[in-house]
Design a binder for these strands. Structure first.
Length: 562
RNA sequence: CGGGGCGUAGCGUAGCCCGGUUAUCGCGCCUGCUUUGGGAGCAGGAGGUCGCAGGUUCAACUCCUGCCGCCCCGACCA
């Protein structure tokens, strides 16, 4: 592709709306342009890379027996109502206003719809169906460029199986395919156990990339590879000690003491002697959650322990329920359900709120003073705590979710009546799995991980072009002749070349654009070298540069691009 | 949806608090000449509903009200 008169509007300056590296470089490097919040146009270079991502995904999906389809993004609302997901998605789903259609945020329903008419017998199974389609989600707050958009490109595949054992196999195939896909893309990623959330189903794992721009928090053990979304991550931490003698309960006047830290400072005690109280509303009934010290309640864990709907109580509800405001609430005398985190198991001589403003209670023995107390893992793990598997310190950090694989089970086949007949003519619901990869995110994450102060550093796999050919001075006949010759000949031979043939751009301008765009190899045609029948080759990633005679260029390029 | 910030030429911006000349500067763009191995120089030039709509005023980029858009933090999120 010739650069002169092509749609590659690189930017010298950083647009104000971009703050994370990949977003900045995707804008500056002319890969994308924003149309509206969370809605991006891919320009020629960006689209070329996006298609390379899709192609890798396609090859690996086909390799495990996936069959590519193309399902509509416009869906009848009715089918989404049958599974209850119009309500489940709520405002996140786009609705068409002049007809009863929705824009599909994912495609479980549509797959189930087609499976229903097609899958009749156990002989029809298993199946892997996938497509690469634009998805629509009305994100309240799009951010980080293409990483969280209202419209994005996703590969989603769905497996149909007879049994959960068979589903395990389909799931394992996807796990394998996903590793290959991300490996081929050159991403550093890891896999975490995750909560299934609104998708339903039993097991799910996420493919994550570490990044400050991420929206998920994960716990990771470098030593043994344990990794989990912080929604479900556990770690080993010491519990509160149980002392030989339980002290008597005593009420203490604690004016203006609201937080655990203030309480510790006021009473000159340690955090591990305090029980923090949080009140949640669980299906319209209050529940007091007791945590040790400053431990944070993990609401995902709490929800899975309690089931149903759980939300924190509003400040005005607290006084009515407990008799005190936040900061003075405690388990002793609390009249509703109480549960506690495992760290508090059998603890005594604790301090906690007195359910009376400005008062705390000391000498609490949970075994003696709180009836029917149940203990669960309710806390959020933190950096430095010990790995549940190997005991090494874990690290907790932000990450971007690139892919997610789910064992769905029969949720959708039950709702939409997708059944098959077994050998005995008995009907059973088809067992489903669902697997997604955010193609835009693959691109953005790659750039997050592969850049320097000059710009993007592509590897051959995802680069829009393999070679960036730079003719330094288009007014010198020797330069033009050589560059044109290389461009024509090598393009015919299958090299994918971006040719900077802009007539007026200065050398420095071209060099900087080339570094910004980041093709793996730059071939530089300058006057001095050209006269001697030589060109310069620069490797973008390492910055290495060397001069080669034109006769040797081809073999050299083949060697580099192998 | 809550909190904060911003909206002036294709991009980045000054001016606004304290209303009053022809709305500032840099990049980019056009013309000419020079230059051509790390974002060139000189000269000339084009380009603006100052986000939109009301209001106050003799007078609004500037003050007031409403709306829209964008960014950041949070809530939410498959």
């Amino acid at each position: 592709m010739r650069m002169d008169k092509s749609f590659i509007p690189t930017l010298k300056e950083t647009p104000t709306e971009a703050v994370i590296t990949s977003h900045i470089l995707m804008l500056r490097g002319a890969l994308v342009r924003m149309l509206s919040a969370g809605i991006y146009s891919y320009l020629p270079l960006g689209y070329k890379s996006l298609r390379k991502v899709s192609e890798i995904v396609r090859e690996e999906m086909n390799a495990i027996g996936g069959q590519e389809c193309h399902l509509p993004a416009l869906n009848p609302k009715e089918i989404w109502e049958e599974t209850g997901r119009v309500e489940a998605f709520g405002d996140t789903m786009f609705h068409v206003t002049n007809r009863d259609y929705v824009l599909a945020p994912t495609h479980e329903e549509i797959i189930a719809f087609h499976a229903k008419g097609t899958i009749k017998s156990y002989k029809d199974l298993p199946q892997i169906w996938y497509h690469i389609q634009t998805k629509f989600r009305n994100e309240a707050r799009p951010r980080s460029g293409v990483i969280r958009g209202r419209q994005f490109l996703m590969k989603d595949s769905y497996t149909l199986d007879t049994t959960f054992e068979e589903l395990d196999k389909s799931y394992a195939l996807h796990d394998k395919a996903y590793r290959k896909i991300f490996d081929r893309c050159g991403l550093k990623y890891f896999i975490v156990g995750a909560s299934s959330g609104a998708m339903g189903g039993s097991k799910s794992e996420e493919f994550m990339v570490k990044s400050d721009a991420g929206e998920d928090t994960v716990a990771y053990c470098e030593k043994c590879g344990y990794a989990a979304n912080s929604e479900v991550a556990t770690s080993v931490v010491d519990g509160a000690p149980r002392h030989d003698n339980s002290e008597e309960i005593k009420e203490i006047h604690t004016p203006n003491v609201h937080s655990i830290d203030e309480l510790c400072a006021f009473l000159k005690i340690n955090e591990t002697q305090c029980a923090k109280s949080r009140i949640y509303m669980h299906d319209n009934a209050p529940v007091l959650v007791l945590m040790l010290g400053n431990d944070e309640v993990n609401e995902t864990k709490l929800t899975s322990v309690l089931g149903g709907n759980v939300r924190p109580c509003h400040p005005e509800e607290l006084k009515e329920i407990s008799g005190a405001d936040a900061g003075s609430i405690g388990p002793v005398g609390f009249k509703h359900k109480i549960i506690a985190d495992n760290r508090l198991k059998d603890a005594n001589n604790l301090f906690s709120g007195a359910n009376k403003n400005d008062y705390h209670i000391g000498g609490i023995d949970l075994n003696r003073d709180v009836a029917n107390l149940e203990y669960y893992d309710l806390r959020t793990s933190e950096t430095g705590e010990k790995c549940v598997r190997c005991g090494s310190p874990i690290e907790v950090f932000k990450a971007i979710e690139l892919g997610h694989i789910f064992k769905l089970g029969t949720k959708y086949s039950d709702a939409l009546g997708v059944v098959y007949q077994d050998e005995n003519g008995q009907e059973h619901p088809v067992v489903m799995g669902s697997y997604g990869i955010g193609c835009d995110r693959v691109l953005a994450c790659y750039i997050e991980q592969n850049n320097d102060e000059k710009g993007i550093i592509w590897n051959k796999t995802l680069a829009p072009f393999e070679i960036h050919l730079i003719a330094l001075n288009m007014r010198k006949e020797t330069v033009v002749n050589l560059a044109e010759k290389i461009y024509d000949e090598y393009t015919k031979e299958g090299f994918d070349i971006l040719y900077d043939d802009r007539p007026d751009a200065q050398a420095g301008f071209k060099f900087n654009d080339a570094d910004l765009l980041g093709m793996p190899v730059q071939v530089i045609v300058g006057e001095k070298n050209a006269k001697e029948g030589k060109v310069e080759v620069k490797i973008r990633r390492t910055g290495d540069r060397f001069v080669v005679p034109v006769e040797e260029l081809k073999s050299k390029l083949k060697e580099i691009l192998m």
